[in-house]
Write a protein that binds this DNA or RNA. Structure first.
Lengths: 146, 146
DNA sequence: ACTCCCACTTGTGTTTTGCAAGTGCTTGCG
DNA sequence: CGCAAGCACTTGCAAAACACAAGTGGGAGT
């Protein structure tokens, strides 16, 4: 079920192409960002993101991300009528990629000033730390997910 | 500063969202990959990639990438009826991001064996070098673009 | 002048996405 | 219990993006 294999008879693909098949769409990385940097875990929280993902697209993306093994879905013990979406190791290992995106974007697509989230709100400090001590920053962000 | 709610039509965007608006589609990174790793520079070369991009989509992506300042378009001095598409500095600085994708993909989406391109063909060696001496690898790939 | 090659554009059908509304299960409350 | 409210979706339909095939116009070669 969680096994990912190249379809039979399929041309072998380059790493970039196969990665794009997993998260190379408009919404997957936004969802992962919400988990990594905003501490979101619920369907309703992803829906509330300012980008405004549609309910059907969100549902299908969560299903796909789970099928690809990037996230796990389980009942929320604290609220039995809802579910928790959390990163698997495979998903967590996308953090360096996300940080490279933030780094590039901070350099070339500077934003005026944003409010209430770690990456939009404090990219400069985050990136400073990224340059200084990348590994520890990664550990720290991952630690905050628990 | 005061926290700013996303006002109608003018919400401040996070670095990830704004980056995805630039290259977060099915084809942009494939085109950039062709330039970075396959040394391609012509419309017809991008068209010949095994992924099979459509002519209209390729044209629109090249236009968009140029508009975003990731690539330059200029006449090919060696063949005046065609154009060269080359990376700008802004585009070149996406290399670390591409390499992170390759790294993640090599780890979690392993490919059997591929033929004739640097990343699909020799990801292991490339990534070994990435771990050992990231900066020099980046310099080297960029140097090969000249 | 005629034919290639080249970088596109145009037209048409299909797939993906966006939006609004609805569904079914669960929970809290009188 | 009965009922409303919250939750995670699903469904139906319109709009947009995309794939595919064909065509266009300019330049170069012969």
């Amino acid at each position: 079920m969680s096994q990912q294999k190249p379809a039979a008879g399929m041309e072998s693909k380059c790493p970039i192409t196969s990665a794009l098949e997993v998260f190379g769409d408009k919404w997957s990385l936004v969802i992962l960002r919400d988990i990594f940097f905003k501490g979101k875990n619920h369907y309703r929280e992803f829906l509330a993101s300012p980008e405004g993902i549609s309910t059907n697209i969100l549902a299908s993306r969560l299903k796909k991300l789970e099928a690809e093994g990037l996230i796990d879905k389980r009942p929320d013990e604290a609220n039995l009528s809802s579910y928790l979406y959390t990163l698997t190791d495979k998903g967590k290992n996308l953090l360096p990629l996300l940080l490279e995106i933030v780094k590039w974007s901070a350099r070339y697509n500077p934003q005026p000033h944003a409010g209430d989230n770690i990456i939009a709100g404090a990219p400069a400090r985050l990136l400073e730390r990224y340059e200084e001590d990348r590994e520890q920053l990664i550990e720290e962000v991952l630690g905050a997910l628990e």
